[in-house]
Write a protein that binds this DNA or RNA. Structure first.
Length: 336
DNA sequence: AAAGTCTGCAACCGCTTTCTT
DNA sequence: CAAGAAAGCGGTTGCAGACTT
């Protein structure tokens, strides 16, 4: 019945591995192959638990492990995968050749997580949270300008921020322009003294599927009132079918349109909303077809507000993540 | 230069899942 | 099918080196 005990833990060595131990383990596995960790320590002459041997091999000694700094592309992939898979480090590692789950987990906790928080992104939900943002360092920076601000928010949806600035630049009220998105207000002008606040409710007249700007007067947190031009996005068109499972905002889906928007925005002087009479226009009208869309999935129930997500569907989305192009302008080092 | 603090990462711990008997 | 061990996995810890005061 069952198996015999793994190993007698008394008297086994713990702590950092020595070169001699690494050599013993490597030579043994080169001859006998990995696996059978219970008997490995005894057969190889190591005074270690089999579990410790397995960990040392899989996380450090394996020949196919890639050492050194994570590349920008790897970092972006980790963020994207984490937004879909959560803390499933082994699943993330399976999609990053040469990287171990332990390495990715450590890198997330020591680098990426901190950076997301600093930039106002909740590392758990991947959604903006201005209460996490280190605003003082941003707003008091001598190099503070709009392009830097867009880089900060690039993980949310840089194209929307760019569009917000574009529309705001045409406004008569240059002092108080804001981007309103998913219940957060982002500054789109260069006034560092302007308070930034979460809004507590969505304006009732916010149209769906449209980018929208209008002079606005409303109460924000702490009893403060905001007056100025709000640029809003409430994107819920049929394109949501392209959204990945588990993602409940529109930022990822909008990335499909990144290149098209960039070209539109670069012609900012001639670019105007399609419907200026009511200060709004349909986002579908300027981004008619995705450049590189994930494979549309069959059941709408797996998407927003859905729960019946299957492993295959997640797999399908994850494979498509790597088709997304990363804009050259997203040089994080420039900002940090 | 010394002491204190911070940071990054290898390794461990303990829980869950898979597998063997 | 059940029991229990092996393997897998994610969270946490401890320590060495870097950095700050």
């Amino acid at each position: 019945m069952g198996r015999s005990p793994c190993c007698d833990k008394s008297g086994l060595k713990k702590g950092p591995w020595t070169q001699e131990e690494d050599l013993k383990l490597t030579e043994y596995i080169q001859i006998h192959g990995p696996g059978n960790w219970r008997t490995l320590p005894k057969n190889s002459g190591l005074e270690r638990c089999g579990k410790s041997c397995r960990l040392r091999w899989t996380n450090y000694l394996r020949p196919d492990i890639k050492r050194g700094r994570f590349s920008f592309e790897e970092e972006e992939s980790i963020i994207q995968l984490h937004s879909v898979l959560g803390n499933k480090w082994s699943a993330i590692a399976a999609r990053l050749p040469g990287r171990t789950d332990n390495e990715i987990k450590n890198y997330w906790n020591t680098h990426i997580r901190k950076r997301l928080i600093k930039n106002g992104i909740d590392p758990v939900t991947h959604r903006p949270r201005l209460d996490l943002m280190d605003l003082s360092s941003i707003l008091t920076s001598a190099s503070f300008n709009l392009s830097n601000l867009f880089k900060i928010q690039s993980l949310v949806n840089p194209q929307v921020l760019s569009l917000a600035n574009l529309l705001a630049s045409t406004s008569s009220n240059q002092e108080n322009n804001k981007l309103f998105l998913n219940n957060y207000i982002f500054p789109v002008n260069q006034n560092p003294n302007e308070p930034i606040a979460n809004v507590t409710s969505t304006p009732s007249n916010l149209p769906s599927n449209q980018l929208w700007h209008q002079e606005h007067h409303m109460e924000v947190n702490n009893g403060e009132y905001f007056s100025g031009n709000l640029v809003s996005l409430n994107y819920q068109s049929s394109q949501e079918k392209l959204m990945p499972p588990c993602i409940t905002d529109n930022s990822i889906a909008l990335q499909n349109y990144s290149d098209q928007f960039t070209s539109q925005a670069s012609e900012s002087s001639s670019f105007q909303p399609s419907n200026t009479e009511n200060n709004s226009f349909n986002i579908d009208s300027i981004f008619p077809t995705p450049i590189s869309s994930p494979t549309p999935l069959d059941s709408s129930s797996v998407f927003i507000n859905g729960s019946s997500t299957t492993e295959d569907e997640i797999e399908s989305y994850c494979n498509n993540i790597f088709k997304f192009e990363i804009p050259e302008s997203l040089e994080l080092e420039d900002f940090m």
